[in-house]
Design a protein around this nucleic acid. Structure first.
Length: 116
RNA sequence: GCGGAGGGCCGGAUGGCCGCGGGGGGCAUCCCCCGAGGAAAGUCCGGACUCCCUGAAGCAACGGUGCCGGGUAACGCCCGGGCGGAGCAAUCCGACGGACAGCGCCACAGAAAAGAAACCGCCCCGUGCGCGGGGUAAGGGUGAAACGGUGGGGUAAGAGCCCACCGCGGGACUGGCAACAGGACCGGCACGGCAAGCCCCACCGGGAGCAAUGCCAAAUAGGGACCUCGCGUGCGCGUCACAGGGCCGCUUCAGCCCGAGGGGUCCGGGUUGGCAGCAAGAGCCCGCGGGCAAUCGCGGGCCGAGACGAAUGGUCAUCGAACCGGGGGCGACCCCGGGGAACAGGAUCCGGCUUACAGGCCCUCCGCGCAU
RNA sequence: GCGGGUAUGGUGUAAUGGUAGCGCCCUAGCCUUCCAAGCUAGUCGUGCGGGUUCGAUUCCCGCUACCCGCU
């Protein structure tokens, strides 16, 4: 199993935003394969989380990010691909309300779609 | 029992498994401990702590505060008191200094909106009956606001013109630390409102903010600081005197620097990363004592987050408030099923204020009704 | 973290403390064979809650939303 790394640089988020994306009811997934020139470990899977002010106040944003992290922790080490960056974006309401089982299944389906 | 007023507190609970942030022990897997709030929020005030600015005093400008006393590190906060207003009351509310320092404004209406004046009136005199001269401010109406009110005397008609009471102004003296209250006696009606208009008075205030600031490492580019030799004008050529300019907005005093370039030494600034700041504090709990209280003193005990794309989640079980449906009971209430918890999360820290908050608990007090 | 500004009909904007105007839009009528233009009339408003004042869009306080700086 590959260890997950967390995205922290704004530039990484901007590059991911220009890449492929897949919407599901509870959130939006962006994914891209990194270039060799970026100097990151080619075996690493990296993931970032974004919840804008549209999601709600600080409590709602933190709760949405925690649920996204839980989903990523369960699915990405098994179904994510080494050398790729993923960004999960929270939505107002749905990210906090959807059942976890549904969210895990949605992420699996979104990953299959993005890897094609 | 019904209605109301004030204050304090809680604000889902317990456990299993998989995970998250920090600390400690082993340092091989692993084990142990700790881990959001009363508002953590808004950033509206006050500080601590750092760095920056030559210093002191006065003045000016700008901003803030504004009844009195106390508390406090400080405050625009809190407590107590005074005054005014609301309420039957408990109690609540109040930007509550100054309108004889000056300026300004008071629309419309009205004769007149502020050193008073006189539209309709009333009265007297003159008269050529059109009115003219004079007295007056009781009556009329306007307005948010009209230059004391009521009654009597008085008068040509009237008027604090005079008198009584009320109001108003001054006020010896008394009580109180004070705000203020009472008030002998005097005056004889003058002194409209607005300072959340400018302003005056008293008091307070330097600027920036933990992304402050300090240290370390890497890589990059060529600006500043210090030391040394030396320097303006005058003459009687000296360890002399005299300027000039600059350093807080202004003034005074004190102090400092520049004014000539050459040589040498050292470092700043921007970028990225790490460490410190960074959590034992105006701290919390208990007891005793002072004080009406805010709060203060003493003694004992405790350690309760420290991240930096930023930690509390997922799942299961048990219990569970509001609320909904059904049933029983005169009623308080009880039983069954459903349901599944408000506002909201640290980012240097602390004291306040303000705003948001489902529901529940406790204490004290007031009014009305009933019973004794 | 520190600070500033704005909010007025559907829209863009005015208003020394004294009746909230103006252009476009919309509705109706006139004009025209019809449409457009033009003319006439009309509807629609001070972000919210308090306070000062006789009277508040304006002055003061507290919220809400949006926008903009600095670090």
């Amino acid at each position: 199993m590959t260890q997950l790394q967390t995205l922290t640089q704004r530039a990484d988020f901007l590059r991911a935003a220009r890449a492929r994306r897949a919407p599901v009811p509870a959130f939006l997934v962006q994914a891209r394969r990194r270039c060799e020139s970026e100097g990151v470990d080619p075996q690493a899977i990296r993931v970032g989380f974004t919840c804008s002010k549209k999601v709600g106040n600080a409590v709602a944003r933190n709760r949405a990010k925690r649920r996204l992290r839980e989903v990523a922790r369960a699915i990405l080490p098994l179904e994510g691909r080494p050398g790729w960056d993923y960004v999960l974006i929270g939505k107002a309401g749905d990210t906090a309300a959807q059942p976890m089982e549904t969210m895990r299944a949605d992420l699996s389906r979104a990953l299959r779609k993005l890897h094609r």
